[in-house]
Design a binder for these strands. Structure first.
Length: 570
RNA sequence: UCGGGGGUCGUCUAAGCGGUAAGACAGCGGCCUUUGGAGCCGCCGAUCCAGGUUCGAGUCCUGGCCCCCGAGCCA
């Protein structure tokens, strides 16, 4: 069941906002922003932040900006800004005309830097990067003042202007805030606020060769946009004093920075660096590989955006580090799809089943329910004939205990079809593999009910061999083989799950799927939820991804059986 | 070692700012079923530790312990 909206208690951020509204701190306004750096693709961790920022704005009747934090031309590209906009939209949020770039404020920021210099609160340092590091001190020892710390305002103004004009090589000097080289907070030991980079910027071209650092650019961007609550992740906690310092020093509008714990998901990694590694080393097909936790990967895999939003609501927002079980995501997806996905029949690993007493040239249409959770979805005709395919897993020559499916002499139901009893089967003598099963059907059970009231313990999905369409099916599993792949000494890349992607060709689908495209998600009965691949699938050459499997209680029983028989051998 | 954060069922999140530790996921068991699906019912299960204040502490105080972040001219 879906939880009743509004019953969930508020998280600490919304409590802060409530208080600020009560005290009239920002005139009752709520204005947030989602500020990605366009240096990679968005992943589900970003979805948490997007849902938080855009969600809060919606709830409070406020606004949320999309702002690209593009202050480092060395790593940023338009390709990424495109994908980020696409992903935010896909997730279901809209920034309307509130699309901004930190680079739009380069002129203003330059002006603010000049102001700081004039106040004697910033200086040009000509120490080398290595020297700056040495002078900074360590976690437990204070730093020392740079010999250039006391340059005159005039000299600093002149030097900074010349930095801007491109008179210096990269690394020759930087502009630093003059704060406190002995501060226990390293961020306050005269942080760099401008550095030289002779690189074109994807928006400002070659206009600038000096670029502001995050700490300087971010608080000012927030201030310029009149953001009320600047929500970011925990690692920025000890940057907050610096955020506040710049704004106070300049005497400008001052938003509140609030930090929350970023999302971690079991069996996956969510760091740009590691995801980039997977892509560059070709361990996955790309950023949108259906196994990737990127939004483009999840989209390709078929997860509905609503499910991701509901997942983000469910995990909550707090300050403690945590690893959310990916099973919760899967559960949320199943919950949505169960209600909405039309049912179809498809066979992953076909096993021929011939009905010995069904006339060779006969065929008929059976009526199948599209969605038992939503009868308004109606029914569809499914063709039936003498030769069918069933799932290899659904026949066992020697059925183990608790196995209810087809076996020699046993009767089962073909869904929406007939009761069939296995009278014979054929086996490849070389491999021992079952190659064909022969059954007799009971014409009186058409539709799946026996007039004499007899019961069967299993219902199998099937497709008519003559009418089936072929497809490739990709089963997607967790990318890593353990809950926390980055824990311990070993490289996370040694923890990849070798079975994260299983490709089956020659799968057989009911003919109504012939024209399927990525706009619709289906449940293939008893197998899971599937979607046509948004890159590789086309009519005549269908490719489906499994979004998520159905809950499989038989698999659990089987696993337990295997385990206990192992025990017996011990 | 210094500074900043954080420790509640296996997991995630709650507990109107001192008053019966709650929900969801996972796990386990049952009912039901033309998907071994879905649904329904039940069970299991936690306040880091030690003191203190109090009629009463997850919440307040003291002292420990453990975990995360921080020494980019990255964000």
């Amino acid at each position: 069941m879906h939880e009743v909206a509004g019953e969930r208690p508020k998280d600490f951020i919304r409590e802060i906002i409530d208080q600020d509204i009560e005290t009239g701190r920002f005139g009752g306004r709520v204005h947030t922003r989602f500020p990605p750096e366009p240096n990679g693709y968005l992943h589900i961790g970003h979805a948490k932040s997007i849902c938080l920022n855009f969600g809060i704005a919606q709830e409070y009747g406020g606004l949320c900006n999309l702002r690209f934090d593009d202050t480092n031309p060395a790593t940023e590209e338009v390709e990424y800004v495109q994908s980020i906009m696409e992903d935010v939209h896909w997730l279901g949020f809209d920034w309307d005309d509130r699309l901004y770039y930190a680079s739009d404020y380069f002129d203003q920021m330059y002006g603010y830097a000049v102001e700081l210099i004039k106040m004697g609160k910033a200086y040009v340092d000509s120490l080398s990067p290595e020297e700056i590091r040495e002078y900074r001190g360590t976690l437990s020892e204070p730093g020392r003042d740079s010999p250039y710390r006391d340059r005159s305002v005039e000299e600093n103004l002149d030097l900074f202007e010349r930095m801007r004009r491109g008179e210096f090589a990269e690394g020759a000097c930087v502009l630093r805030a003059k704060i406190d080289m002995a501060s226990p907070n390293l961020n306050l030991r005269d942080p760099t606020i401008y550095r030289i980079k002779h690189l074109p910027h994807h928006r400002t071209g070659s206009k600038w060769c000096i670029y502001p650092m995050y700490d300087f650019a971010h608080c000012l961007s927030d201030s310029i946009e009149r953001i009320t609550h600047s929500i970011c992740t925990l690692e920025f906690e000890d940057h907050r004093p610096l955020y506040d310092w710049f704004l106070d020093a300049l005497g400008v509008y001052h938003p509140q920075q609030i930090e929350f714990a970023r999302l971690n998901l079991s069996y996956t990694v969510l760091s740009k660096r590691r995801l980039l590694q997977l892509v560059e080393e070709r361990r996955v097909w790309g950023w949108d590989d259906p196994r990737m936790p990127t939004l483009s990967g999840l989209r390709r895999r078929g997860l509905p955006p609503e499910s991701i939003r509901r997942f983000c609501e469910r995990i909550g927002v707090a300050k403690r580090d945590s690893i959310v079980d990916v099973a919760l995501l899967e559960h949320t997806v199943r919950e949505d799809l169960n209600l909405t996905a039309p049912r179809r029949m498809g066979v992953l690993r076909p096993l021929k089943l011939t009905l010995l007493n069904y006339p060779e040239d006969q065929e008929e249409m059976l009526e199948a329910i599209n969605n038992p959770e939503d009868l308004s979805a109606g029914t569809r005709p499914v063709p039936f004939s003498r030769e069918l395919y069933i799932e290899q897993d659904d026949f066992r020559e020697n059925p183990p205990p608790k196995y209810y499916r087809l076996a020699p002499g046993r009767e089962v139901r073909l869904r929406y079809g007939y009761f069939v009893r296995c009278v014979d089967y054929r086996k490849d003598p070389a491999t021992g593999e079952i190659t064909e099963v022969f059954c007799e059907y009971d014409p009186a059970t058409r539709g799946g009910d026996a007039p004499d009231g007899r019961k069967v313990k299993a219902t199998l999905h099937w497709v008519s061999a003559r009418h089936a369409v072929d497809a490739e099916i990709r089963l997607i599993d967790r990318l890593f083989d353990r809950p926390n792949p980055t824990e311990g000494d070993e490289d996370f890349r040694t923890r990849l799950n070798p079975d994260s992607l299983q490709i089956y060709r020659g799968c057989k689908l009911e003919p109504s799927l012939a024209e399927a495209d990525p706009s619709c998600r289906f449940q293939f009965e008893r197998l899971g939820y599937f979607i046509a691949d948004n890159r590789d699938s086309r009519p005549g050459a269908l490719v489906f991804n499994r979004i998520v499997s159905l809950r499989d209680t038989w698999a659990k029983i089987e696993a337990r059986l295997a385990k206990s028989s192992n025990h017996d051998r011990d």
